[in-house]
Design a protein around this nucleic acid. Structure first.
Length: 542
DNA sequence: AAGCGTGACAACCGCCATCGA
DNA sequence: GTCGATGGCGGTTGTCACGCT
């Protein structure tokens, strides 16, 4: 669309492109000349003037266009018009399927870095790509499809294994070989969790938060028949280390955290759907004990497509103790609620740049966000993860470096979610008590005392009951200092599962089926949890 | 035919980084 | 070191066309 026009143009009174509407006057008569700067659609006359100017003077010095050509447009407007419409090397027309796929791939890697993506797509502008992506995202959201097709996730993750900021997990620690893993398997190196499964986030992470992000699973996901054997090294965003404080769980963890047995019963209909079968009944497709079960929100105003469920982390769902098997009639909150919760979780405490991240980044950032939200809900208590400096400013470079374009994952952790989620009021967490099951403000002493003892020993100890923290720090190979790579290792077999077929007709033969991640973990891989416990012990206790 | 929803696109807005005086 | 100019970038909004009810 050339979008040139000859009428109803708006002018702005000064040379600033960002004048308020009150400064604007409508006057086609001032289309060119030295009058007030014009806004609105460009006319063919203006285009001709601009093209002529650029041909004579070249690009740049856009603010001089008005002076030299008499065009009543601000420099920024001229630059934009030239870059997006008048450049001779622009490719016109709709995106080809190849281009579309490339955009998806690039977005998975870069996040909302439209300009960088445009570089990869000659003849296309960042604006085009951005519009395409936004439209596509909206469309897929409406259709309940995942943003990232399964194979794109796979490719992205595989590509990222060649990238930088990679956290390598210990490949020598191979009780579970990739071949052994019909499910993506994470080996938590040297975890020692003395309490049995006081790992409240695992259900969340495995059940939805990570698994629901196509290609993003940090948790051993042994849900059955997926045949993904791909192994990748999980990239560790340095920014993940910019963590502040975290709540201490106080009291008897049994009061808060369901055991695995309780938490992960899942019916076989789960895989039916994931393998392309019927959408399961609401009761059958839930992790028993997941927050989705516990939220007590029995109103689901919209049909929950399974694909949507897969993309919507459940970590924010309210949990109510003792209702592990409850509420088949109300499996999920309305999508809006879920979106809201997700968004808030992501946005809490995040800077703008932090809200831009890539696919995998989303996973790690989500973990961070979860902690932050917990922290917000538990302002009276805190625990500082081991090895994570309390002074976030102590590592600005690393953090910012990761946020920089050099990250293989780029930005937009939140974009993965936010693309599905409207902006929200800040009420969601409070309303839904999203992670309270984890971060309940109980006054019990026992568990907290145990942790406190350790904290006395090591002020920066991780919260051992927090696997997400572990993932953020020790588990992901961080040390107390800047080198976050190549310390500890852990094999992460392909965490990917595709919730649904994608735009490109990908074969979804890797879809999840089977049973709960933790169920499998618990029943079949208890040794892996022994490893987890070792991580929990922390460096000083190994 | 009117109203509405949606997609596609263009343009604007605000923020930020860079550069030179 | 400060400040203004400039340009880049990402998010958002506005507009139009089209299809459906």
């Amino acid at each position: 669309m050339s979008n040139t026009t000859s009428e109803s143009e708006e002018m702005i009174a000064s040379g600033d492109c960002t004048n308020s509407p009150s400064d604007e006057v409508s006057s086609e008569r001032n289309m060119v000349g030295n009058g007030p700067l014009k806004k609105g659609p460009w006319t063919s006359t203006e285009d001709a003037i601009l093209v002529d100017y650029v041909n004579k003077h070249g690009e740049g010095n856009w603010n001089s266009v008005q002076k030299h050509s008499g065009l009543s447009r601000c420099g920024k407007s001229c630059r934009l018009r030239w870059a997006n419409h008048l450049r001779p090397d622009l490719k016109k027309g709709a995106f080809t399927p190849e281009e579309e796929r490339r955009i998806v791939e690039l977005h998975a890697k870069m996040g909302n870095k439209w300009a960088r993506m445009a570089v990869e797509l000659p003849g296309r502008t960042d604006n085009e790509i951005k519009n395409f992506w936004n439209t596509r995202t909206k469309r897929r959201q409406r259709a309940g499809l995942p943003i990232y097709p399964h194979d794109v996730c796979l490719q992205t993750l595989n590509d990222n294994t060649q990238g930088q900021n990679m956290l390598t997990f210990d490949t020598s620690h191979a009780e579970i070989s990739p071949d052994d893993c019909q499910f993506p398997a994470v080996e938590f190196k040297k975890l020692e969790l003395n309490q049995e499964f006081y790992v409240p986030n695992i259900p969340d992470l495995a059940g939805s938060s990570f698994l629901d992000l196509p290609g993003c699973s940090l948790i051993p996901n042994r849900m059955g028949s997926t045949t993904c054997n791909d192994t990748f090294e999980f990239p560790v965003p340095k920014r993940i280390r910019r963590l502040d404080t975290y709540p201490v769980f106080e009291g008897d963890p049994n009061e808060y955290f369901p055991t695995v047995d309780q938490s992960f019963e899942i019916s076989s209909s789960y895989d039916q759907d994931l393998n392309g079968g019927d959408i399961p009944s609401s009761s059958s497709c839930l992790y028993t004990g997941s927050h989705a079960h516990f939220n007590g929100n029995t109103s689901s105003s919209e049909p929950i497509l399974w694909a949507q469920k897969l993309e919507l982390p459940s970590l924010q769902y309210t949990t109510q103790r003792g209702s592990c098997n409850a509420a088949p009639s109300s499996p999920l909150p309305p999508l809006e609620s879920v979106d809201t919760l997700i968004q808030q979780s992501i946005l809490i405490g995040q800077s703008k740049s932090e809200r831009d991240s890539g696919l995998l980044d989303a996973v790690l950032l989500q973990s961070q966000s979860l902690k932050m939200s917990e922290s917000n809900n538990n302002s009276n208590v805190s625990i500082v993860p081991r090895d994570i400096p309390t002074d976030s400013s102590s590592q600005p470079d690393d953090w910012e470096a990761y946020g920089d374009q050099m990250s293989p994952l780029g930005h937009s952790a939140a974009s993965v979610f936010s693309e599905y989620t409207p902006h929200l009021s800040g009420s969601s967490l409070d309303e839904h008590h999203s992670v309270e099951a984890i971060s309940v403000k109980h006054e019990g002493e026992e568990f907290g005392a145990k942790l406190s003892d350790r904290e006395d020993e090591k002020p920066n100890d991780l919260d051992y009951s927090r696997p997400d923290l572990l993932l953020d720090s020790n588990l992901l190979g961080s040390s107390s200092n800047a080198d976050y790579s190549n310390k500890d290792h852990c094999v992460v077999s392909d965490p990917i599962h595709a919730p649904a077929s994608d735009d490109f007709g990908c074969d979804s033969n890797k879809h999840i089926s089977g049973y709960s991640p933790l169920q499998g973990l618990h029943n079949e891989s208890s040794d892996k949890w022994d490893d987890i416990s070792e991580i929990c012990r922390g460096p000083g206790n190994r």
